[in-house]
């Protein structure tokens, strides 16, 4: 299997250094070759299992975090907000 590692890296928001590209390519191809050994399971479908039912939460307000607690880990903040490079959209 030939994997478009550049495309996958871009989708993953990763940039792979040129000198590591070859190893990543090879490793990925080996791993994919390994996982491809998985046999197909015949006559089975993946329906949602009602036995997997989760309990839903009551619509009751609970206290939120203090803003300082939210922002204390942010690499950059200003005016009570997290700061990111200017977005175009």
């Amino acid at each position: 299997m030939n994997i478009d590692i550049k495309h996958i890296a871009k989708l993953s928001r990763l940039s792979i250094e040129e000198d590591k590209m070859e190893k990543f390519q090879r490793d990925m191809e080996n791993i994919v070759a390994m996982v491809e050994k998985l046999p197909a399971v015949e006559n089975q479908t993946l329906a949602v299992d009602p036995a997997d039912r989760m309990e839903l939460r009551k619509d009751e307000i609970r206290p939120s975090l203090r803003r300082e607690a939210l922002l204390q880990n942010a690499p950059q903040s200003a005016a009570g907000c997290i700061v990111v490079p200017k977005t175009v959209e």
Binding site: I3, I5, I8, S12, L14, I16, F24, M28, I31, V32
Partner: peptide, 15 residues
């Protein structure tokens, strides 16, 4: 690198 490998494998199998 190991984390990157797994992220890329995961991205690939879902793509």
């Amino acid at each position: 690198d190991e984390v990157k490998r797994r992220i890329m494998l995961g991205t690939f199998v879902l793509s």
